[in-house]
Write a protein that binds this DNA or RNA. Structure first.
Lengths: 182, 182
DNA sequence: GTCAGTGCAAATAATTTGCAGTCTT
DNA sequence: AAGACTGCAAATTATTTGCACTGAC
């Protein structure tokens, strides 16, 4: 059995290419213009499985896309979300994080470093989604997360032990706070 | 069968009293001081089932607790969370929301008005929580939300129809944005 | 050519922090 | 008393917006 190594936090390039072309088609069919910036932001999200923040996307892209501005990244993310190309992930810290993976999966959320990783859903999802009868709530998305401690943060940490940091997104407010707490 | 009416978003006062006294004991036993402000913030959260934001708590309390400051509310909420008296709820908008209900339940999150309501968990929770073997992640909290449209926002809205607003928390950034989108 | 999309800088929102004073224990 | 907790104002962080300009269609 061969192990195929991919860079940490990276999605197989085959899949990425697929998603990107579907994205461009989708844009054109809805009359959204395919600009270098939009393409870059979407591709960045498609490649990155660490659910980066707007700022992280901006930092990753700035060297490649000349003159890109943070405000634009925010605007693009909002439009991608509205058009259903990406999903905004609920977080415990203030920062918005994004996910181009729209398939049903669960998130492993580390309460120490704030990292969010995908994991296959190991629980049957009721279909159709239950209606909360009394309240009249109509559910559309089944959003399951397991909150806990990731491998890196859980390792015994004597002298020299290092705390994991999500690769593409440096720890932000809440994550920093969690680290302080330990 | 008699229907016991409680104010929308309110928890039975019996339970609230219970929780509050447990809270005060807990504080004392850990050497935390029981001040009027802390008591008020915790009680507010215990009474309110709408998962209010710091700002909402502040507004609700300002008339009652003279001279209360927003910074203090934030500080108290952080301390309550660290001590495990309340849980910070993950949200899709930027605003932090809090929940004094620590029992296992799921959240119904309205993507239009941003409201978050509790609902009994109608799904078996694997015990112990699954370990994501490969990744070494150790799960502690099972966090399930159903994201969709709440009763108020889903009602047919011809002329005169009104959009629901979460009672204790006025819509914030993301919620306002959702409303704009409709 | 048209106008959606962009960059920049300034505005707003959400949260945190420094410091001097206050109140619980 | 001691120092944990608070209020106030100022600082930070996260995100949005106004406006003139540019590039995809």
């Amino acid at each position: 059995m061969r192990i195929i190594k991919t860079k940490r936090g990276a999605r197989p390039s085959r899949e990425v290419r697929d998603w990107c072309s579907r994205f461009e088609e989708g844009c054109r069919s809805r009359g959204l213009r395919v600009t270098a910036q939009r393409r870059a932001v979407y591709q960045c999200l498609a490649e990155d499985t660490t659910h980066p923040t707007a700022e992280a996307i901006y930092s990753a892209l700035r060297p490649k896309v000349t003159g890109l501005s943070l405000a634009t990244v925010y605007r693009i993310l909002e439009s991608l979300e509205q058009e259903g190309f990406v999903r905004r992930v609920r977080t415990v810290d203030g920062a918005g994080r994004f996910d181009a993976n729209l398939s049903l999966h669960q998130h492993l959320v580390c309460r120490r470093c704030g990292s969010i990783t995908d994991s296959p859903l190991d629980l049957p999802v009721p279909q159709p989604l239950p209606r909360a009868a009394a309240s009249g709530f109509v559910a559309e998305i089944f959003d399951l997360s397991l909150i806990g401690i990731c491998a890196g943060c859980g390792r015994p940490r004597g002298r020299g032990a290092r705390r994991t940091q999500p690769s593409s997104s440096p720890p932000r407010r809440a994550a920093r706070e969690f680290q302080r707490r330990s």
